[in-house]
Simulated assay, not measured.
Amino acid sequence: MMKKNLMFLAFAALGLASCNGGFKKGNGGLLYDIHADKGGAKVKEGDFISLNLIAKTDGDSVLMSTYEQGRPILTLLQKPQTTGDIFAGVKLLAEGDSATIKTEIDSIYKKGTRRPPIKGKYIVYTIKVEKVIPKGTMTDTAFNSRIQAYMKVQTDIMKKQEPVKIKKYIDDNKIVGTTTASGLFYTITKPGVGDKPAVGDTAEVFYTAKYLTGKIFETNVKDIAQKNKTFNPMQQYKAIRIPVGVKGVIPGWDEGLMLLNKGSKATFVIPSNLAYGEQGYQIIPPFTPLVFDVELVSIIHPDPNAKKIVPPAQMTLQQLQEQAKQQQAKK
């Protein structure tokens, strides 16, 4: 998991001015500018590191920011994959150091490897090394114990900060709404009419997903995607169909959708225990509350005359045996 987190850095970009003034040259076309040098021991392969970074395109469009996500990247420093890649750049730093590191896109992708869809010549990272736990001569057991102890402290901090962050978001945006018994906060921005979806119904929904910072990380609304510069021509921007109340989505959605009438627009502020919890999911860090702007376009009720099919996993042993006899008789 740690390796995957840092490998993702090789696909993020941070644009700078075209000139390289102030940058020093490293191997493989690597350019770097160290902003703060605390004079500590440099990071070595195998060390545990906590990194904050911001990533942008050459057009200055932010692709990734750990500050916006509210959590640094926690990983083991891997061996450089190619000369002059981001791993080599991080090895120039120590705990507390910060730098801008530029790598040439074409030089870090081997022949036959698909180049990421990033315009410009460079992938450039602005990095702050928050914490280093050196592997040194420690045994794996001792090393892992130190990492787990550090991560537990960070986890406890995040857990305590979450309700404070949610309250601040609601207060700062002057949102008037309701908090349910589970902790879901919602506000109806446009009332709908008619029935509300019930368990077993299917809801057709437009949505925009954001962090508490306001950063949009996902939407199926075409205009918003274009304005946010996240438009993907391969994606179909239309209402998605969600089975309601059957745990097909995060708990905050299951509960929230059943509070809305057809045609309603609403904002959900969902605490992490009703979202992706202490594990997180892909780009969503652990203990991350999320904001969803949703529109309930329509409600599809199940057909009462439809033939009910019992999933194989829920069949009794007797049913499975009877099914096998019937199939054998047809042969």
Rank of each mutant, 00 (worst) to 15 (best):
D201R: 03
K38V: 14
T83W: 00
N273I: 02
V244M: 02
Q279D: 07
Y237F: 06
T66K: 13
L77I: 01
Y32F: 12
M158L: 12
D293M: 02
Q323R: 13
K222M: 08
P251S: 03
R115G: 11
K222A: 11
T180N: 07
A209R: 05
V176E: 13
Q69E: 13
F231Y: 14
V43Q: 01
T100C: 11
G136T: 01
D201A: 11
T187H: 04
K190H: 12
P163H: 10
D171M: 11
P116R: 08
I250P: 00
I133D: 01
P191M: 13
A94K: 04
V246S: 10
S65I: 04
P285M: 08
A36M: 06
R71F: 04
A99D: 06
V62F: 05
D293P: 01
V246E: 12
Q282W: 06
G277M: 06
R115S: 13
N144C: 10
K168N: 15
N173C: 03
S50E: 06
L317E: 15
V269G: 03
Q226E: 15
A198G: 14
V310W: 06
I105K: 09
L31T: 14
K110R: 09
E218I: 04
Y122F: 10
C19L: 15
T103Q: 12
Q148V: 12
K262N: 05
A13F: 09
A99G: 15
I118K: 03
P312A: 13
D60K: 08
A324N: 09
M1R: 14
I175Y: 05
E130M: 13
T137C: 12
Y32D: 07
T189Y: 05
Y186D: 00
Q69M: 14
